[in-house]
């Protein structure tokens, strides 16, 4: 990549990276807000866990290009393509967060839960003092998977005109310009690695000591 190329596209790469980050972050926020409470509810009604996980699983298997295409005609999305992208990305982030939060809470030593209940903790105290702290490493692992997936899929969002680094990639493919493809792909890969590393660190820090 030449200095001239960077001079020409540098500011655009920067603004598209920020756009990319914003799409991903917004989707992660919505997905966490939906999936973590939903997973907690499922631990209270485990009968619903299987169908709920199956549903998010199905969402996960929809090819991303098709997902963006499906969402395109929905009227309530308004005219901003970014909203479509955020909805689609949220759908992809749901499964890893839901599955890990559910498994993290259900996987807690039953003796610990039994004692917590028997000593008279309220449901809320049980949740915030025992279940969530013990499940945190699992929840973080789920967030990590979701974040990496979202950063990757967000490149497709450019197909519906939502912007992000995918725009450079699509433009590069259309004009057979590998430099443009890389100008989109490399920052996207770096974003994914950064998200993975940051959440990985957090996960290790929150890990509960065991024998």
């Amino acid at each position: 990549m030449t200095a001239g190329f960077l001079a020409q596209y540098g500011s655009q790469i920067a603004s598209l990276t920020i756009e990319h980050l914003w799409l991903t972050a917004a989707a992660m926020l919505f997905a966490s807000g939906l999936a973590i409470p939903a997973a907690i509810a499922l631990t209270r009604f485990p009968r619903w866990a299987k169908p709920a996980l199956a549903l998010t699983n199905i969402l996960q298997t929809i090819p991303s290009l098709a997902m963006f295409g499906f969402l395109l005609p929905l009227p309530w999305l308004g005219d901003r393509a970014a909203r479509i992208a955020i909805v689609a990305l949220t759908a992809y982030a749901l499964l890893p967060i839901l599955r890990n939060t559910y498994a993290g809470i259900r996987g807690i030593d039953p003796a610990v839960i039994e004692v917590a209940r028997a000593m008279g903790l309220t449901d809320w105290q049980l949740l915030v003092k025992v279940e969530l702290p013990l499940a945190t490493p699992f929840i973080l692992a789920g967030l990590r998977t979701a974040a990496v997936t979202c950063v990757g899929i967000a490149t497709i969002a450019a197909a519906v005109g939502a912007g992000g680094l995918g725009e450079l990639i699509f433009r590069g493919v259309a004009s057979v310009d590998n430099r443009l493809v890389l100008a989109g792909a490399i920052p996207a890969a770096l974003l994914a690695l950064a998200a993975d590393a940051a959440l990985g660190l957090l996960e290790r820090w929150r890990k509960v000591p065991t024998q």
Binding site: D109, A111, V115, A116, V130, T210
Partner: peptide
């Protein structure tokens, strides 16, 4: 209880 069930 037997397993103690301490909060790890």
């Amino acid at each position: 209880i037997q397993e103690a069930g301490l909060f790890p």
